[in-house]
Amino acid sequence: MYEYYAKWIREGKLKVNSDWNKDLKIKFTVQDPCQIVRKSFGDPIADDLRYVVKSVVGEENFVDMTPNKSNNYCCGGGGGFLQSGFKEERLAYGKIKDMQIKATGADYCIAGCHNCHAQIHELSEHYGGHYPVVHLWTLICLSMGVLGENERTYLGEDLADIYPPNVYLNED
């Protein structure tokens, strides 16, 4: 999916911009989903993912994890772990991911897949980091000024009331 987001941004179809975050300077990091990056398309799609994220939150507001891309650590949400019943082990598995996220100093973690989102969200609560975990589609819509009121469940307080102008309204 990210390769299409990236393509549509490059083609000017998705008019994302990062102006909304110029003064806020909210920092974001991103989880590379193993399934999409390491297991399927490799670093090129991880680069597309970063291109999208940077276009949306601002280059200077993106902080990468270490290691990252194809060498990234799995968060522990994959392979059925979330449904397997081994909760304690799953949280132990995710400790390294939580530490990686905290080490970036980012305010938010962007998750590109449902399992990652659920797992990292739980890690954020369990290990006390309380960084919000957001879907990429939320931020893309936010940046274009089209994110609705009901679509903000995963945003933190700092972004809950941020409504940038709808960039498609002032066209022509």
Binding site: R38, N71, G78
Partner: peptide, 16 residues
């Protein structure tokens, strides 16, 4: 062993 249910098959081990 229950471990096969705790490995997410993330393939990082193959990568390295």
């Amino acid at each position: 062993s229950k471990w096969p249910w705790m490995c997410t098959m993330c393939q990082r081990c193959i990568y390295v």
